[in-house]
C-alpha cells in the first residue's frame, strides 16, 4: 500500500471516530492489505489524534483469547494506542453516546510500568520486575467498521478497536497475585454476565505484555515507565449502551464500576 492510500484510510478512520460514523471494512476494498499496512494506517489515525492534542499514555493488547483468535483466524495478538482522552476512573460516568458507536465492555488486567521495557528478549520475569502494579480495568472496545465486520487487518488499522478504558480502585504489586489464576466476575445491571480468569489472556497476562514488548522491540520501540498496558480480555465481550451500569472484580486485585451515559 502506498503512503497516500495509507494516509487516506487513516484519515477516514479518524473522521469515523470523531463523527461516530461507521465505515465499510477496509479489507473489502483492499483485499491484499497486509498487517504492516494496517499498523501504518493505525499510526496515521494516531497522528491525527495527537495533532488534536491527545497524548499517548500507554498501549492495549487485543486478540489475546483463543476464541477471538479463531474467530479472526490468527494466532497472535495485536495492539493499539491509549491516549489521555480515553482514560476514566472507576465510578465515572462514561459518555458512550457522545463518543462511541457500538461499544462492548471487556474486563481486563492493566499494568502500570515503573521501568522501561525494550525488546527483543523480554521475558515474563522482566515484565513482572518492571511493573509498578496491576489494576482491575474495563476496556470499552468499539469498532469504526460497520457492524464489527472485521478481519484482523481492519481491527489493527482501527487502533485495535479501542474505545475508552476505566481503571479500577487498586494498584497491586504483581508479586502479590497469581496473574494466571486470579478470577474475574463481570456484572451488568446487577446480574453476573461472565466469569473468567487471568489465563484467558494468552495463558497469562504476563505473556501478553512480554509479547508486546518483543513485538515493538523489533521496530526499535520500547514500552516506557509510567505507561499503562491493557493486557487483554478475561471473558466474553458484553454489549453496552447508555443507561447500563457495570461492575467487575478480580480476585486478589480489586474492582471497578462504571455507568454508561
Amino acid at each position: 500500500m502506498d503512503p497516500k492510500t495509507i494516509r487516506g484510510y487513516g484519515d477516514e478512520l479518524y473522521d469515523a471516530l470523531r463523527r461516530q460514523r461507521m465505515v465499510a471494512p477496509i479489507t473489502d476494498r483492499e483485499p491484499e492489505m497486509s498487517l504492516e499496512d494496517a499498523y501504518a494506517i493505525s499510526r496515521q489515525l494516531l497522528e491525527r489524534r495527537t495533532a488534536d492534542g491527545e497524548t499517548v499514555i500507554g498501549k492495549k493488547i487485543g486478540v489475546t483469547s483463543r476464541a477471538v483468535q479463531s474467530m479472526l483466524d490468527v494466532h497472535q495478538p495485536d495492539f493499539g494506542f491509549l491516549t489521555d482522552a480515553m482514560v476514566f476512573n472507576s465510578g465515572d460516568h462514561l459518555p458512550v453516546s457522545d463518543l462511541l458507536i457500538q461499544p462492548r465492555a471487556e474486563g481486563e488486567i492493566a499494568f502500570l510500568l515503573k521501568r522501561d521495557l525494550m525488546g527483543p528478549g523480554i521475558t515474563n520475569a522482566d515484565v513482572a520486575a518492571a511493573t509498578e502494579g496491576v489494576m482491575p480495568c474495563f476496556e470499552i472496545v468499539d469498532s469504526r467498521i460497520t457492524d464489527w465486520k472485521i478481519k484482523i487487518q481492519d481491527t489493527v488499522a482501527d487502533n485495535a478497536s479501542c474505545g475508552l478504558f476505566v481503571l479500577g480502585d487498586a494498584l497491586v504489586s504483581p508479586a502479590r497475585v497469581d496473574l494466571a489464576t486470579c478470577g474475574m466476575v463481570l456484572e451488568k445491571n446487577g446480574e453476573i454476565v461472565a466469569t473468567g480468569a487471568g489465563a484467558a489472556a494468552l495463558n497469562s497476562p504476563l505473556n501478553a505484555v512480554a509479547w508486546l514488548a518483543n513485538t515493538l522491540g523489533a521496530f526499535g520501540i520500547g514500552l516506557s515507565a509510567g505507561e499503562v498496558i491493557l493486557s487483554g480480555s478475561l471473558a466474553a465481550l458484553i454489549p453496552v449502551q447508555a443507561g447500563d451500569c457495570m461492575s467487575m472484580r478480580i480476585g486478589g486485585i480489586g474492582g471497578a464500576s462504571v455507568r454508561f451515559v
Partner: peptide
C-alpha cells in the same frame, strides 16, 4: 478466600480448555 473471584484454570493435555471464577456458581 474471596470465593466469588476465586479463579480456576483447567488444562487438558497441557492446553487450557476451560476457565472461570467462583461466582459462576449461583454468584
Amino acid at each position: 478466600l474471596d470465593m466469588p473471584t476465586l479463579g480456576v484454570v483447567m488444562e487438558k493435555n497441557g492446553e487450557i480448555v476451560e476457565l472461570g471464577a467462583g461466582a459462576a456458581v449461583l454468584g
